[in-house]
């Protein structure tokens, strides 16, 4: 956790993302034009969110296997870092929407809210919101850790099932890779994304994710210090 190489990597990658993202050449499609640069920020946020939630899920399972309160602290802070990136994803998405779909395509905002990907993101944020409310309602730390781990495992599985269900219910999507395309996520599909974009996009995803992990670990470390007496006693048992 205290090793610094990955923090330096994150820093360098993000410097590259910001400078390269704004200065390197990008393909200009109608309507999108230069806004495609938002790919490095908006889409990367969602990737980071999903990865951070998955790390939180992993620690929740580990808590139920070992009952070590440290795992609970990890799960909690990775979830909150994931939420932060989810909110940032919404903000960057909102900026993107307002200059493309709303301004150029004449879509209404209420139409945009029914987007499959937005529904998925909203469910994700609601679930982790509920997770924090649940945590807040306990005074006993062991009970809190156990119950919230159960909820987060259940909710995470349901969330990822949702990802496959929603495209079947909500027809059409403004996002690329919806019904019209080959399906799946175009950012992951090698054929759908221009190689010029890939040059910055993959480093951006890695950089943002590492930043998220960095934020989470800082908070985990402070909590581990403040909770030291508690952890010590529970660990002995």
């Amino acid at each position: 956790m205290t090793k610094s190489w990955w923090k330096i990597t994150s820093f360098v990658l993000l410097i590259y993302t910001v400078t390269g993202g704004f200065l390197l050449d990008v393909p200009r499609l109608p309507i999108l034009n230069e806004t495609i640069r938002n790919l490095y920020f908006h889409v990367a946020m969602w990737f980071a969110m999903t990865i951070l939630f998955s790390i939180s899920f992993f620690y929740s399972i580990r808590y139920l296997r070992r009952f070590d309160l440290r795992d609970d602290i990890f799960a909690r802070h990775f979830a909150s870092a994931g939420c932060l990136f989810g909110i940032l994803g919404y903000i960057t998405g909102f900026i993107w929407v307002s200059v493309t779909w709303v301004a150029d395509q004449g879509q209404s905002l209420s139409g945009v809210i029914r987007e499959p990907k937005l529904i998925f993101a909203a469910i994700g944020l609601l679930i982790y919101g509920a997770y924090f409310v649940l945590r807040g309602s306990f005074t006993d730390i062991d009970k809190r850790a156990k119950t919230s781990a159960v909820y987060s495992i259940f909710a995470y599985v349901m969330l990822f099932v949702t990802m496959f269900i929603i495209p079947r219910i909500v027809e059409g999507s403004l996002h690329p890779g919806g019904k019209g395309g080959q399906g799946g996520n175009p950012a992951l599909n090698f054929k759908d994304i221009d190689s010029r974009l890939r040059m910055v996009f993959y480093p951006a995803v890695l950089g943002w994710t590492l930043l998220g992990v960095w934020i989470a670990t800082l908070r985990i470390r402070t909590q581990l210090i403040t909770d030291k007496p508690l952890l010590h006693t529970t660990h002995k048992n």
């Binding site: 469910i123 409310v133 909820y151």
Partner: peptide, 29 residues
């Protein structure tokens, strides 16, 4: 789950709604 947290019925709704949403959308469809 909610019963563990001081018997709070409102909590149950908060926990359940985001999880039930995909099922509900399927049913409505």
């Amino acid at each position: 789950i909610a019963a563990k947290a001081q018997h709070n019925a409102a909590l149950m709704a908060i926990l359940g709604f985001p999880v039930i949403l995909p099922l509900l959308l399927l049913l409505m469809r």
